[in-house]
Amino acid sequence: MFEGYSITPDAFAGKNAAQIAALPGHEGKIHVTIGDFFEVSGNGGETAADTDIVITGDCTRVKYIGARMTAGTVTVNGNADMYVGGWMKGGKIHIKGNMDSFCGIQMEGGELLCDGDAKNHVGCAYRGDWRGMKGGTIRVKGSAGNDIGTFMLGGTIIIEKDAFIHVSTHAEGGTVVIKGDVEGRVGGQMVKGDMYVLGKIKFMMPGYKKVDTVEKEIDGVKATFDHYIGDLGERHPKSKGQVVYANLYLKAVA
């Protein structure tokens, strides 16, 4: 188990291969270096923005890849462990395999792309923090587990396949798109923000009320959606005298 919190363009910038290999990490309580786990070749760019990191091999047990990065790119030709792109502010991460939980936690900007599946807590907040994901985009081409976009304030999360439970719980902004089916608990305790579900929701939240049917285009899909507002059980702010609700757009059954 390697905590690779130094695997970011910001840390690599301005360093040569040997210096990068010497960057710190942790394995349990043991202080280790990147070089203990990886063969490093090539040099970092001058700044983070012109540093591209490519990791070949399996990172199923490497945490914090690209966490807190501000610019540049990270590509992992395989799986990645927890906290991929956590707290990231800019740049781009591409995981070609699957991601574990807590990816994109409290992300502020940039782009996180995963070709496989993500586990739980995609784009969520850290425990106790009411300031979740603020910006940027997370795209998971596979499916995702529970707690997507909890306490989300901004940015976009797209799950191209199915999701389990708890989408945008407690959210106060941002957009979540689920292209497949969801088991349930979509938008619970949600204050504001948007959700799109292109598949089915097995169990609807009772606090959502259908208000109309709209034509919308989302992430390249044009469709008719049933428009729900909610969570009616939750508090909601007012803007210009109007109560602002969260919106759920559920693809209408043809």
Partner: peptide, 12 residues
């Protein structure tokens, strides 16, 4: 107890 985030900000 109720404020783990008081210990961390942005993961730091």
């Amino acid at each position: 107890l109720m404020r783990p985030e008081d210990k961390f900000i942005s993961g730091f």
